[in-house]
Design a binder for these strands. Sequence first.
DNA 1: GGGTATATATAGCACGGCGATATATCGGCT
DNA 2: AGCCGATATATCGCCGTGCTATATATACCC
Lengths: 117, 117
Amino acid sequence: MTNKFERDLLRGSLDLVVLSVLAGGGKKYGYLIQKEVREASGGRVDLAAGTLYPLLHRLEDDGLIRSSWDAGTGRERKWYELTAAGRKRLSAQAQEWADYAACIRQLLAIAKVQPAS
Amino acid sequence: MTNKFERDLLRGSLDLVVLSVLAGGGKKYGYLIQKEVREASGGRVDLAAGTLYPLLHRLEDDGLIRSSWDAGTGRERKWYELTAAGRKRLSAQAQEWADYAACIRQLLAIAKVQPAS
DNA sequence: GGGTATATATAGCACGGCGATATATCGGCT
DNA sequence: AGCCGATATATCGCCGTGCTATATATACCC
């Protein structure tokens, strides 16, 4: 992330972002998730490795995702998939996000804030 | 804030929220800002005193707001108002917020996330 | 065999929201 | 007068967490 503001924005939506990418279907591994997030966000969200991997561990500890190591030889990948709890959490947070965003939009509208050019 | 998710959401929009309330016109003091944020957000955003006052100090240190103590006797109030830099920052962050929100909405759309009932 | 991309992991830093706590005034009730 | 809740500001310290830096190892191309 470029600046502090964006870093803090990310903080409020990081679980949401990663869970939603995993909801896109099938198992995915960390490095792939990083790439998909970057692409799906048009380059705006680019997770540092030091952010992503600890996050995946937290999500797994919380039972929201499940992992299995690649069976093949060579470069090992840790494949993640959503659990039922993860899917539920994703839905709930998506709703909360939408509500909160609407709330902020209203605050800005009340103040008649003009976006910068 | 009720839970961790909302606390982290707040973190990404706190400056925005406070600056936008101050953009609403005239000088305002901390306790009033707290009330107006609570009301304008439908009770969703309720700033703790331990959040609000340090924040106001930071914003002032950054030159985004300016303060003056109440001249009258009795209960003292510290009145804040936006500076030109503050108004500029507000516009910029409002734009960034809108862009980021659009980005998240797209991510959720791609993943076909259904919001919780 | 050297360099770049792929792939995962962790330690430690820096920052900030919040609970707890302190202080003081004001108004209403009894 | 005394009490109490609301008003009003302030700070300390805890805790969570995103990120930089660092480590390790494989794959592939030149």
